[in-house]
Write a protein that binds this DNA or RNA. Sequence first.
DNA 1: TGCGATTTAATCGTGCGCGATTGATATGAG
DNA 2: CTCATATCAATCGCGCACGATTAAATCGCA
Lengths: 147, 147
Amino acid sequence: MDFKMSLDDHLCFAIYSAHHAIVRMYRPLLDPMGVTYPQYLVLLALWEQDGRRVRELGADLFLDSNTLTPLLKRMQAVGLVARRRNPEDERSVLIFLTEKGKALKAQAEGMSPCVAEAMGDDMQELAELRDRLHRLRARLDGVTQKG
Amino acid sequence: MDFKMSLDDHLCFAIYSAHHAIVRMYRPLLDPMGVTYPQYLVLLALWEQDGRRVRELGADLFLDSNTLTPLLKRMQAVGLVARRRNPEDERSVLIFLTEKGKALKAQAEGMSPCVAEAMGDDMQELAELRDRLHRLRARLDGVTQKG
DNA sequence: TGCGATTTAATCGTGCGCGATTGATATGAG
DNA sequence: CTCATATCAATCGCGCACGATTAAATCGCA
């Protein structure tokens, strides 16, 4: 049985290829905003809660400072965020949205119809897919931690 | 409603984070084999059908030569594949598994129990998740093409 | 109080993805 | 047969991811 497992039979490849398809779909929507897809995810996290530490942002996004620091510096360079040392604890760095970064939220909400059209209109199906993936991720995280 | 959409509410982020969790889960299994996760996907495609052109491999993996050429050269450098110009059409390059590349298949099949344990034992659920993702990817590819 | 252990961000090197371009080979219309 | 067009792999530049390491600040305990 394992001996006949093709690429398409693998769940891992379904996730891999769906991920890249998502990024390709978002690119033309995000390009006019001047942000990449990972940067858009950072913005989503900051629109939800501003002024977080890099560590907290990383916990939400499942990313470490080796990825986030250069990414946030690029966002700072184009004026989307400000990085300030935390006066309460000089080890940590706080990330704040600039006015430009805040303003992008409205523009991003304008993408919704395009995203909805691309993803499909079956909200039930999409929400269920999302929840199944979150459960799988949580399970994998748990196993990887212990293993 | 859109104004309260958190990171976790987004299907795109569920896919993004599940993808990275999958890669993290596979890493300790693939490291001893000396291959990366994308290289493992290439091997899956080649174990299924050997001696393909770069273009065909790319069609299966949804990757272009700008990604595949350097990746295949790295696999050639460690002796997993051979790259030969196609005598029938000198524009194309054929990719062949070496004996070492073929031998890795048995070792990869040994990962199955670990993967199964990490992913969970509900094969029905996992197969359904896989099929839903393939349908989403197909839909996104269609929309992106036309758009 | 002093000092080792811990926490935090930053840095470095490597390997993807991919938009854009290049160069070589094949194809096809006239 | 010729030359424009198409196809194919390769190349280049940039931005992630991430393992490993470093440096600074804080914490905790003797």
